[in-house]
């Protein structure tokens, strides 16, 4: 395997991982499958694009065109993506969680509501911005950096490092903080959670905002290579969902593992000359379906078992 393929695979794994982890966390803590994750993706892309339109002249006037300016631009982009994603996450909380979380059949209902949100968002974006694709400014520059003698494109390096850092922060936050513990508690037994002084209604808000922010970051990072468009969220959503499935819905290590597997699969299949890009999606889904038929709970399905043992 050439190093280029390796880096490409890691790059893809990082972006898919961001999507998949968001979906997984939301399922494990709130018990809802967020079909509006793609909409979050697209909306944050557009928000960042809007911000870039406003911020670019401002930053150019203030810092010129040096390294400072590009760092400031990058930071603005990432912050706007995260912020827009978090706000959209809050919106999902208001529409798809708060009114229905006490009603029967919450999983299917929230799925439907988030689907509706997805549908509406795509149409709204189409309505306001038109179907034209937009390019985000390159936040990591265009050059290459050499690490251990391997030349890596700056945007790939930036993506991998940023994602790895953010994931680390998220995982530690979930493991160590009181909020993380509250989220686990809420998932395992809502009534027990309220008896421990945890508000089931409001604990879900940071989770939806966090997963939204992850999708926003994914949008910024993926938009370094692809354009922003109203329907840009569909493919990342489906890939994120299937990877979350592959990893076992709700399992964070499973999602990371699944993202790495799928990322490398894409990179390898894409680099084999007689298969090519055309069979990438095909091979991925075949792989996922095979794994799911052998292990219906995905790579790490432990969590679901605890969920069931509670219901039993």
């Amino acid at each position: 395997m050439s190093t280029v393929t390796l880096i490409h695979g890691l790059n893809l794994a990082a972006i898919y991982g961001l999507m998949a982890i968001g979906i997984s966390i939301l399922w494990s803590s709130v018990g809802m499958i967020n079909m509006a994750h793609g909409a979050t993706f697209a909306a944050s892309g557009y928000a960042a694009w809007q911000v870039s339109l406003i911020a670019q002249p401002l930053i150019a006037a203030w810092l010129g065109t040096g390294l400072d300016a590009s760092i400031a631009m990058g930071a603005t982009m990432i912050a706007s993506g995260l912020g827009a994603g978090a706000i959209f996450g809050g919106l999902i909380f208001l529409l798809a969680y708060l009114p229905i979380h006490e009603k029967a059949n919450f999983a299917v209902r929230s799925l439907i509501v988030t689907l509706a949100i997805n549908l509406a968002t795509v149409q709204l974006l189409l309505y306001f911005f038109g179907p034209r694709q937009r390019a985000l400014p390159k936040i990591f520059g265009l050059g290459r950096t050499e690490i251990l003698g391997i030349p890596i494109r700056n945007d790939q390096l930036g993506t991998i490092v940023a994602t790895a850092l953010l994931m680390l922060v998220v995982v530690i936050w979930l493991k160590r903080s009181r909020k993380g513990l509250e989220i686990t508690a809420m998932m395992q037994n809502p009534e027990g959670a309220v008896l421990s002084g945890i508000s089931v209604r409001w604990t879900a808000l940071p989770v939806t905002m966090l997963t939204g922010a992850l999708a926003g970051l994914a949008a910024i990072l993926l938009s370094q290579t692809v354009f922003v468009s109203p329907t840009a969220g569909a493919l990342p959503l489906i890939k994120g969902l299937t990877i979350a499935l592959l990893g076992g819905l709700g399992s964070i290590p499973g999602a990371i593992m699944g993202a790495i597997l799928i990322g490398f699969l894409e990179a390898i299949v894409g680099s084999i000359s007689f298969l090519g890009q055309r069979y990438v999606l095909f091979s991925q889904f075949l792989f996922i379906i095979t794994v799911l038929i052998i292990r219906p709970r995905g790579l790490g399905g432990l969590l679901d078992q605890t969920r069931e043992s509670r219901n039993a």
């Binding site: 686990t184 508690a185 037994n189 027990g192 605890t306 509670r310």
Partner: peptide, 8 residues
């Protein structure tokens, strides 16, 4: 009845 968070 029992303790409330079986998976912890």
């Amino acid at each position: 009845g029992d303790a409330i968070f079986p998976g912890m």
